[in-house]
Amino acid sequence: MSLKTVVISQPYITLTQVLKEEGIIGTGGQAKWFLQENVVFVNHEAEQRRGRKLYPGDILEVLDQTFEIQKQV
């Protein structure tokens, strides 16, 4: 499983925003359904809140993909 990087310029990004930016879901409206049907881990803990704030250093695991949130420098 390769580690992909999500670079953010704000202090945080929501789980829904990451799922949209990475092409996992097409619209924010799909997030609720997606999170009910799929197991998503944030920092190795199951997460179902689509508004969960992800900060630099957080690790997101979804659909056999792993993402690390990083701050834009």
Rank of each mutant, 00 (worst) to 15 (best):
S2I: 14
S2K: 15
K4G: 04
V6K: 07
V6D: 07
V7Y: 05
V7S: 14
S9M: 03
Q10N: 15
Q10I: 00
Q10P: 01
P11G: 03
P11Q: 09
P11N: 10
I13M: 09
I13T: 07
T14M: 09
V18E: 06
L19R: 01
E21R: 09
E22N: 11
G23K: 02
G23Y: 12
I24D: 11
I24S: 11
I24M: 11
I25L: 06
I25R: 06
G26S: 14
T27M: 13
Q30P: 01
A31M: 12
A31N: 07
K32N: 05
W33E: 15
L35V: 02
V40T: 12
V42F: 00
V42P: 00
V42T: 05
H44A: 15
E45D: 08
A46H: 07
A46K: 10
A46N: 13
E47M: 05
Q48E: 12
R49P: 00
R50S: 06
G51Q: 05
G51D: 12
G51W: 03
G51L: 03
R52M: 10
K53M: 12
L54Y: 01
Y55H: 08
P56V: 01
G57H: 09
I59K: 11
L60M: 01
E61G: 10
V62D: 03
L63Y: 08
Q65H: 08
Q65G: 03
Q65D: 11
T66F: 03
T66S: 10
F67I: 05
E68G: 02
E68T: 06
Q70V: 13
Q70K: 10
Q72W: 01
